[in-house]
Write a protein that binds this DNA or RNA. Structure first.
Lengths: 123, 123
DNA sequence: ATTATTGCTCTACATTTGTAGAATAAAATA
DNA sequence: TATTTTATTCTACAAATGTAGAGCAATAAT
């Protein structure tokens, strides 16, 4: 199952807040804010899909994500890799490196990260 | 405008084939193949969205993509980066490097690519 | 020439998504 | 306590998507 665009956006807010009541979620949206019912509908659908859950406090709910951003995101990227790059992560990576405009500093940082990863593998 | 999942898949075929008639496209699909009309509908919608066009040969059409895979893909990734990483490509890159399972060799390759990119920037 | 095949457009229909009003219940506030 | 605010569920509806049948016209095969 997957989240739709609007649901992903809501999920973003939840990841940031960690947990939140309806009010807190609504506050995340800029004007013109969606109707409360719109958010409620999405939350319900997302709960059905198994992406969020909530704790009851009196009559209202404190919502929280059931999936970590990293987890969701990595399956997302893997989907991308699979569909566009023939399942080759390295192909994806090299494409990515060329096509996104990383600054020199960012590239240096990335290089360091990669070196660390290489070290990890060696052990 | 964006392509839907099924349309993306069709697009994949077109990118691979470069250009193709209905028959050739259908051949790309595994059993159970979608109905010809299903493909036709998608092609029409994709043409409307401006992603494919065609040359007429007699009564039938040779379809071809109007957008390069790289182009489509990079806007795709940029969307991802924007929505999930606060528009920080480097954040995305480091996440990517950690979370996808690149082999040691792939990491080495990637490192080389990055070094090249760094060199390029220096000039 | 007659028939079968292909590929296209139109139409159709179920599902998913974006969005929200109406009704209702609980909680906060006057 | 009476009133207002807040959160929820139900219902609704338009747009997008996945999928394909019916009908047709052009082409290929017999």
């Amino acid at each position: 199952m997957k989240l739709s665009k609007a649901e992903e956006q809501l999920m973003e807010h939840l990841w940031r807040l960690q947990k939140a009541f309806m009010k807190g979620i609504l506050d995340c949206y800029a004007e013109p804010k969606p109707a409360t019912t719109t958010i409620a509908t999405m939350l319900k659908r997302m709960a059905d899909k198994g992406f969020v859950s909530y704790k009851l406090y009196g009559n209202s709910r404190e919502y929280y994500p059931l999936i970590a951003k990293a987890e969701y995101f990595s399956s997302h990227v893997n989907g991308l890799i699979k569909s566009f790059f023939n399942n080759s992560a390295s192909q994806f990576a090299s494409f990515f490196t060329r096509e996104t405009n990383l600054t020199a500093t960012e590239l240096e940082d990335l290089k360091k990260i990669i070196e660390q990863e290489i070290d990890k593998k060696k052990k």
